[in-house]
Amino acid sequence: MKKIYFLCTGNSCRSQMAEGFGHIILGDDWEVASAGVEMHGLNPKAVKVMAEVGVDISNQSSKLIDTEYLNSCNLVVTLCGDARDKCPMTPPTVKKLHWSLPDPAAATGTEEEKLNEFRRVRDEIRKLVLTLK
């Protein structure tokens, strides 16, 4: 089974959403995980907007990068520059992709405007995960 790792700074939004879509879109062909260079906890807005599209990530948790898992991956996807820059070195057998996505947790405005930014990033992540199929 192939392994994929979605990485972002705090493993609270972007990488969690990517992991959720990965489980559904990539199916049983891939072992899917996510992590961060820090742990910021699972963002409730990420849980909410994923539930809107039928993906339950409420049981996922914020985790730090596991070097052993990282080094055994077929593909590592970083979802922000911070994760790309701080990701530990991997063997040459590990393919890396970088998706530069804004942090929806940094959105400002009303609650609805913040949720709309989460939705926008969620939809972009879904499109990108679909390209991996």
Results as ranks from 00 to 15, higher is better:
residue 93 T to H: 13
residue 114 K to H: 04
residue 51 A to Q: 14
residue 65 I to V: 15
residue 123 D to I: 01
residue 77 V to I: 13
residue 96 K to M: 15
residue 28 D to R: 14
residue 121 V to G: 01
residue 38 E to D: 15
residue 23 H to T: 12
residue 98 H to S: 10
residue 24 I to Q: 14
residue 73 C to P: 05
residue 51 A to R: 14
residue 5 Y to K: 11
residue 96 K to H: 11
residue 125 I to S: 01
residue 38 E to F: 13
residue 28 D to Q: 13
residue 67 T to C: 06
residue 43 N to W: 09
residue 19 E to H: 10
residue 18 A to L: 06
residue 44 P to W: 03
residue 86 K to L: 14
residue 115 L to P: 00
residue 126 R to P: 01
residue 119 R to K: 05
residue 5 Y to V: 13
residue 128 L to M: 12
residue 119 R to S: 00
residue 29 D to C: 08
residue 19 E to F: 04
residue 112 E to A: 11
residue 96 K to N: 07
residue 54 G to V: 06
residue 65 I to R: 07
residue 121 V to A: 00
residue 25 I to H: 11
residue 87 C to W: 00
residue 25 I to A: 10
residue 53 V to N: 04
residue 85 D to P: 03
residue 68 E to K: 15
residue 122 R to M: 07
residue 4 I to V: 15
residue 11 N to S: 05
residue 55 V to M: 07
residue 13 C to A: 14
residue 120 R to Q: 05
residue 32 V to G: 09
residue 66 D to V: 11
residue 96 K to F: 03
residue 104 P to M: 04
residue 125 I to P: 02
residue 34 S to M: 11
residue 68 E to P: 06
residue 31 E to V: 13
residue 24 I to Y: 09
residue 17 M to D: 06
residue 57 I to W: 05
residue 118 F to H: 00
residue 42 L to R: 04
residue 15 S to C: 09
residue 36 G to D: 07
residue 53 V to C: 14
residue 34 S to Q: 12
residue 124 E to P: 02
residue 41 G to Q: 07
residue 51 A to F: 02
residue 100 S to T: 12
residue 45 K to S: 14
residue 74 N to K: 10
residue 94 V to W: 11
residue 35 A to V: 05
residue 79 L to T: 08
residue 82 D to K: 13
residue 17 M to G: 02
residue 130 L to F: 03
residue 58 S to V: 05
residue 127 K to P: 00
residue 30 W to S: 07
residue 20 G to I: 10
residue 77 V to N: 10
residue 124 E to G: 00
residue 21 F to G: 09
residue 100 S to Y: 05
residue 83 A to I: 10
residue 70 L to V: 09
residue 127 K to M: 09
residue 48 K to C: 02
residue 119 R to W: 01
residue 120 R to V: 00
residue 62 S to H: 12
residue 124 E to Q: 13
residue 49 V to N: 00
residue 78 T to E: 07
residue 98 H to V: 01
residue 105 A to C: 02
residue 102 P to V: 04
residue 92 P to D: 15
residue 7 L to H: 04
residue 113 E to A: 09
residue 100 S to I: 11
residue 128 L to N: 13
residue 51 A to V: 00
residue 114 K to T: 06
residue 68 E to I: 15
residue 119 R to A: 00
residue 103 D to T: 03
residue 2 K to P: 08
residue 43 N to R: 02
residue 97 L to F: 14
residue 75 L to W: 08
residue 78 T to Q: 09
residue 68 E to Y: 14
residue 81 G to C: 10
residue 79 L to N: 05
residue 3 K to G: 03
residue 127 K to S: 14
residue 18 A to T: 08
residue 2 K to R: 15
residue 82 D to Q: 13
residue 12 S to K: 02
residue 111 E to I: 11
residue 1 M to R: 14
residue 101 L to F: 08
residue 119 R to P: 01
residue 126 R to N: 12
residue 27 G to H: 05
residue 69 Y to A: 03
residue 44 P to Q: 11
residue 122 R to S: 01
residue 55 V to H: 01
residue 43 N to H: 12
residue 26 L to P: 13
residue 2 K to G: 10
